[in-house]
Nucleic acid binder design. Sequence first.
DNA 1: ACAAATATTTAGGCATACCTAAAATTATAT
DNA 2: ATATAATTTTAGGTATGCCTAAATATTTGT
Lengths: 249, 249
Amino acid sequence: MTDASQLSASLEDYLEAIYNIIREKNAVRAKDIAKRLKVSNASVTGALRMLAKRKFLNYAPYDVITLTPEGERIAREIVRKHEVLRDFLVKVLSVDPGQADEAACRLEHGIPAEIVDRLVKFIEFLEICPLGGQKLVEGFRRHLKCGASDNCDMCIKLAQELASKEVSVPEKVKKNSLADLAPGEKGIIKKIRAKGTLRKRLMDLGLLPGSVVEVERVAPAGDPIEVKVRGYHLSLRNDEAKKVEIEVR
Amino acid sequence: MTDASQLSASLEDYLEAIYNIIREKNAVRAKDIAKRLKVSNASVTGALRMLAKRKFLNYAPYDVITLTPEGERIAREIVRKHEVLRDFLVKVLSVDPGQADEAACRLEHGIPAEIVDRLVKFIEFLEICPLGGQKLVEGFRRHLKCGASDNCDMCIKLAQELASKEVSVPEKVKKNSLADLAPGEKGIIKKIRAKGTLRKRLMDLGLLPGSVVEVERVAPAGDPIEVKVRGYHLSLRNDEAKKVEIEVR
DNA sequence: ACAAATATTTAGGCATACCTAAAATTATAT
DNA sequence: ATATAATTTTAGGTATGCCTAAATATTTGT
């Protein structure tokens, strides 16, 4: 709940790298961290010591490295900032993904949590709002192609066409549960069909009505389902996903 | 033309502060810098030496401090990043101005120039595009008020009303020159009615057709006019402003 | 099992960016 | 003109975050 708590930018980078490497390979070695951050092994040792001192890592020389619960919480916060920024850059500003990723790396340390939340709301709003945020973003993408210092008559014409053609009451096409989506598909959460603890758990994870969820991966067995909501990556069991009622536009 | 060139974040802060203080009071003293950056005087001395060594400042102990042309150029780049970020946060995301300013301070060092340009284009697009970027932003502002985790039925209704009422071909209300605007007013640049050197100069300043210009201040005599385009602050003579043909919506 | 290869840590250094306290310079007031 | 006040600079010190080289521990191949 509290803030990302007084970590320097570089310690945040270490924590983020550790978190990501653990997600990818279930284990971290100092060397992996050094390689990912393009830093010497010795520097990694120092950072590990600092992070351990602040109780974000369980670490002893020559022993395995794991995140403490608190360390994991903070790492997730940092990763979320990164993801939200990258999504904004790529989805809204149409920045090239590689460049967006690099920029996100640098911006993630400076951005306050409230602004990340605001950015999430804005991106969601663009995806959801009947005023046509998606059309607007497409228009912007087109506009980027018509040359830099240009008044965009092409854009205006196309926009007028679109605007007159589809004034459109938003149509609710299908109603489904989150468990029915294929990887890559998105939906808007309508409600959580669960009670008590499970309901609370799901909402605490960030599955809030009105938010956009995207399915990222579904395990072969169909069971753990990886989704992204509001910049958070979640892993849900099929049972849980079935309780999340969504709407696909 | 080149990049912000290898300055550390804190040296960028010094340069930015120096630039802003010069704009405000026509002179800088080490003390002013220290106060603005909340840093000791001695730290300022060190920074001044560094900046002078890199030829961004003309500086000698106990002598007046001025920016070199190169220093001024880079300072303007930094200030521009700051302004663009703050504008985005305030105008698009509706972040509280104080908070936006503080966040901009931290983000300005990490953001690449290309992304700033992209952000400028996006903000301009929202202001200009007939798809109704302004309406969308207003809708977003409203949406922020209807509570955090809520599906925004109110927003949907209001949006539908707006959308059906004003499908609207963009109407060109007035045509004027930049010199006719009052402080606070905005217009879209249609063309530069000038030739040769003057034309080039105005375009180099960033007065490009399609961009949004905002008049910030007009001197009592009506002559130097302060405007903002694409994150740049410019000071124009009345003669020059008359050459900039704009459209007010 | 144990030598060779690999991985990690320790030790010692460098640059940045800040600090406080004392010295030097410049401004001001009588 | 000169003492006092204000400002600026120098000197010396701290913490971070990176480096290389050398020492130590672990893993691997036979």
